[in-house]
């Protein structure tokens, strides 16, 4: 112990509390110990500053407006107007494109359903790339919402699929192809586990994410039985000339670093009466999309007339709104 004299009116590390397990004494502060204490303090602050040095590279520190932004469901229409204006400004600054950002709402009497004809899918992956272009996904690192599995004949078990097939020509004999994306479950496990309600199911059946509310814990990624969710491990990068300027708040606006995203049935298209990009690009017509509440829609017809249709991993109780079927 370095403690020696005792002067009751001094500060520093001394004081009556010096008594310790190894037997301390009272300790006052003379000039030498003051110098020592202060040089230790200066060295400490310098070491702290040095260890925090990488923070100088922090380019976009969010504004107070961003920091205090409320949850999507608590935003008034005026709040939303301001938020959309802010997003417009940010996109313009970063990508030099003037976007058209809207908050598309779910329509009454609509519940979207997807049907995919496995007899027709040839595994060309055009849907994967159309989706990336439409939804402003990061190109580096690459984020894709759709995974096409090359399956051996006879099995629907995705664990038997090949994710990384690089065939020159598709389809190959002995295989069929099964694209998997967000299944827009009726009982979505991802929504249940989110600790901050940053993801929820809308009345038209689409499970959405508020990218400005997500804390990036990735519990939803762990919960999803379909590997549908993607995390922005770093700041997404999209070439300026490839930005899709038609954007929606809950859909394809550029995402910040550190949040989760996923397929939202192209909310910016489907809530405006258009088909999703993956369906429009499909060269074989394997993809069908529509309103299940409308008895005359194509998807209603398919679900009524096809003898077998499949919900992936039925045993986990998620009840997908995404149906696979065959031409039989």
């Amino acid at each position: 112990m370095s403690c020696s004299s005792n002067s009751p009116n001094s500060g520093g590390c001394g004081g009556g509390g010096c008594g310790s397990g190894s037997g301390g004494h009272e300790h006052g502060m003379d000039r030498r110990s003051f110098l020592r204490t202060s040089s230790v303090a200066v060295a400490g602050v310098a070491a702290l500053a040095a260890s925090l040095a990488p923070l100088r590279d922090l380019t976009d520190v969010g504004t107070a407006e961003q920091f205090f932004q409320k949850h999507y469901k608590k935003l008034t229409p005026e709040d939303m107007e301001k938020v959309l204006a802010r997003i417009t400004r940010e996109v313009e600054k970063q990508y030099e494109v003037r976007p058209h950002v809207r908050d598309y709402k779910a329509m009454d009497g609509v519940e979207f359903v997807y049907a995919l004809n496995l007899t027709r899918c040839i595994g060309c992956r055009k849907c994967v790339h159309a989706c990336v272009a439409e939804n402003n996904q990061s190109r580096n690192p690459e984020i894709q919402y759709i995974r096409v599995l090359k399956m051996p004949h006879g099995s629907m078990d995705p664990e038997k699929g090949d994710h990384n097939y690089t065939s020159e020509l598709v389809p190959e004999k002995g295989s069929f192809y099964m694209p998997v994306q967000c299944q827009q479950c009726v009982n979505p496990p991802c929504v249940k586990v989110c600790p901050v309600k940053a993801t929820w199911q809308e009345s038209d059946g689409i499970t959405v994410i508020d990218y400005d509310w997500c804390i990036g814990c990735r519990y939803c990624e762990a919960a999803c039985p379909y590997f549908a969710r993607r995390f922005n491990f770093t700041k997404p990068s999209i070439p300026k000339d490839q930005i899709n300027p038609n954007m929606s708040y809950l859909g394809n606006r550029p995402r910040p670093q550190g949040v989760v995203e996923k397929c939202h049935f192209c909310i910016q298209r489907t809530r405006a009466g258009k088909y999703p990009a993956c369906m429009e690009v499909c060269p074989t017509g394997a993809r069908k999309f529509g309103n299940i509440l409308d008895p005359d829609s194509e998807v209603s017809h398919i679900l009524k007339t096809k003898r077998v249709f499949i919900q992936l991993k039925e045993e986990v109780g998620t009840s997908p709104r995404f149906f696979y079927y065959f031409d039989v």
Partner: peptide
């Protein structure tokens, strides 16, 4: 482990969701 530690307050009951 959080992607957005700046948004930790979203988890505070009453203030966040």
């Amino acid at each position: 482990d959080l992607g957005r530690p700046d948004r930790f307050w979203h988890m505070i009951p009453g203030v966040g969701e």
